[in-house]
Design a protein around this nucleic acid. Structure first.
Lengths: 241, 241
DNA sequence: AAATGTTATCTGGTATGCAAGAGCGCATAA
DNA sequence: TTATGCGCTCTTGCATACCAGATAACATTT
């Protein structure tokens, strides 16, 4: 702040967007949580691009806190595979490789398949969740018509986040959410290079109706097929980069 | 150390086994890692039973380090669902509920099913891993004949850890390992109340031969069926407690 | 004796201080 | 001019210090 002209290449990216980071800190739960959310959000939406590198102390200054909570948040992000700390080099935002996405989507196929199955086991209990997934899907359709790729991606994310967070299994929900984060980030990067993804809307509807019908196997199969197909597209897109 | 007779109820359990904790600290990677491993191992094998409660500072004393690394390790364990920190009460080892095990086994069904499928996609590449699983299964059989329940459990664990760690997907491996940890802990508690589990050996062999035959769907189905059945038994055993 | 208010203490979260090691640059020598 | 070696700096990991808030015990009053 005292030196807004500092031209160090390693720190410029953070200095360019100080407001973005600070405004993301609103919750008062704990500073570690604040730092975690702020950094993660910035990484996921591309504000902090792959390869971006910064030192804990500087991040702490940006977020108006000491190194301690930043340190813990960074370690958490490292465990999730979003950053790595290079000894005596600083924290580095990891690039997304095709191999990473293969892994992420394999996990998502397994977990969302299970989540869809669990929801289908109690369709009546899950009605509110199903409605949310329907809303998200409808919004995807609207966004597609308006060729609003960002809006489509946001709604698609919403569908998948509801699917796993409402399945009733908190452990599954939490792990799958971490994978969805990574998928979201990959998509943010590749979005501009892709065709309009028309198939998703229909596939989501198949999943929804199987869940509502209590067709556990059908719901699972549909969820798996959807992620498997999407997986191929994303990975091709990443390989083109 | 200076006060081996301290009778505080909240700290006695740790004081009783100082050697157990300290001898687990051998790696020199980082103190956080040391603390994490020591605490986790003690929780998994029952040295620190559910309900056990201690204060970070005291744990740090036991492990001959400061609070900082202990604090970080505890937070990690909390994320994994093994402990929780009660504000101004200390760190508490969580009990294992039937609901927890339902969740854990649902995740394992999904992930080990996927892992078996991935292995079956490249049986030749996986030959070394398959051998390890065979060894583990043979050892289970021997342990059963000798009615060595502990030995059986150890070998069974080994089988499942190899299955997920060798599947080629590191994210899946890491997440599944966390779930296997919890399953292991639950089994340690319930082992004494169970019948000799004869079915497992045969089921493992089915999984192995499907993988070796490159039968992806069969491997997946067999792995799922195995965990699904075992799930029922463990959960019944826990509910009896 | 019981209930309530006050205060001392204890804990986790956070900040700051300290040390060790690796990289980078500069100086010196060939 | 180039290569090599020494030392300074910079960064993380760990230790220590500090603080706010909640609990629990004690005292006081009814």
């Amino acid at each position: 702040m005292a030196d807004p002209t500092s031209p160090h290449p390693g720190t410029s990216a953070l200095r360019v967007y100080p407001h973005d980071l600070e405004t993301r800190v609103d919750r008062k739960e704990s500073l570690v949580e604040d730092a975690y959310r702020a950094l993660k959000a910035s990484i996921l939406d591309g504000t902090l691009p792959a390869g971006y590198q910064a030192v804990e102390h500087r991040i702490a200054d940006q977020l108006n806190m000491s190194r301690t909570p930043v340190h813990e948040a960074v370690i958490r992000l490292q465990h999730e595979g979003l950053v790595r700390v290079l000894p005596r080099r600083g924290v580095q935002v990891l690039p997304i490789s095709a191999i990473d996405m293969v892994e992420v989507y394999q996990v998502l196929v397994a977990m969302e398949g299970m989540a869809a199955m669990l929801l289908a086991q109690h369709p009546e209990r899950a009605e509110a969740s199903i409605r949310m997934m329907e809303d998200a899907t409808n919004q995807m359709e609207r966004a597609l018509k308006g060729e609003d790729l960002r809006g489509w991606a946001r709604a698609d994310d919403q569908f998948h986040r509801v699917l796993v967070s409402e399945c009733g299994n908190q452990r599954l929900a939490k792990m799958a959410a971490t994978m969805v984060d990574q998928a979201q980030r990959a998509r943010t990067v590749t979005l501009q290079f892709r065709q309009l993804p028309h198939a998703s809307v229909q596939e989501h509807r198949v999943i929804i109706s199987a869940i509502r019908a209590g067709d556990t196997l059908g719901a699972r199969t549909a969820a798996e097929a959807h992620r498997t197909r999407a997986s191929g597209e994303i990975i091709k897109a990443i390989e083109r980069l």
